[in-house]
C-alpha cells in the first residue's frame, strides 16, 4: 500500500466512502423526506463508486475490441456491468420513492418524517380503535393539526 498522501487510490476511495458517509448522514440526521431520499441516492452513488473501484487500476483501457485490436490491459468489465445494474435499480427505486412521497404529501400535507410517523401512528390507532399511547418524547413542534388535543381528550375520558 502506498504511503503517499494524495495518490489516485486515496482520492478515489475517499470520494466513495465520503459519498456514503454524507448519504448516511443525510438519512440519519435529516427529518425531511426529500432530503432522506436524496441521502439514499448519495449513499447508493458512493456504494456504486466503491464497486467500480474494486478492481480499478490506472491506465487500463475500456474492455472493448475496436477494429480487432485487443488492448494490452483491459479494465475489469464485471464491476461496470454490476454498476449499470445497480444504477438502474436505484433509478427505479428513486422514482418509486418520489411517487410515494407525492401521495404522502397529498394525504398528510407534510413531508416531515416525524410528523408523517405521528400521523401514521394515529391512523393505525384509529383504525384499530385504540388510544394512541402518549409518548414521553416531546411532540414535534411543527404540528398544527389537533393530533395532541385528540389524544388528551381520549385519555381524559
Amino acid at each position: 500500500m502506498s504511503m503517499e498522501f494524495l495518490d489516485g487510490n486515496t482520492i478515489l476511495y475517499s470520494a466513495a466512502f465520503g459519498l456514503m458517509l454524507i448519504g448516511i448522514g443525510g438519512i440519519v440526521i435529516s427529518n425531511h423526506l426529500m432530503r432522506i431520499i436524496f441521502g439514499i441516492a448519495l449513499l447508493e452513488a458512493g456504494a456504486n463508486l466503491l464497486l467500480l473501484l474494486s478492481t480499478y487500476h490506472e491506465g487500463a483501457s475500456a474492455p472493448i475490441i475496436v477494429d480487432g485490436i485487443i488492448p494490452a490491459m483491459m479494465a475489469d468489465p464485471v464491476p461496470q456491468a454490476l454498476v449499470l445494474t445497480a444504477i438502474v435499480i436505484g433509478v427505479g427505486i428513486l422514482a418509486l420513492a418520489l411517487s410515494l412521497a407525492i401521495r404522502v404529501q397529498r394525504a398528510y400535507g407534510t413531508l416531515d418524517m416525524r410528523e408523517v410517523r405521528l400521523r401514521l401512528e394515529q391512523e393505525i390507532c384509529d383504525e384499530a380503535g385504540i388510544e394512541m399511547p402518549s409518548s414521553s418524547e416531546k411532540p414535534a413542534e411543527v404540528i398544527k393539526t389537533p393530533v395532541n388535543s385528540v389524544v388528551q381528550q381520549e385519555s381524559g375520558s
Partner: peptide, 9 residues
C-alpha cells in the same frame, strides 16, 4: 461481442 461489458450484461 466486441464490447465485453455487453457480454457480461
Amino acid at each position: 461481442a466486441a464490447n465485453f461489458v455487453t457480454s457480461v450484461v
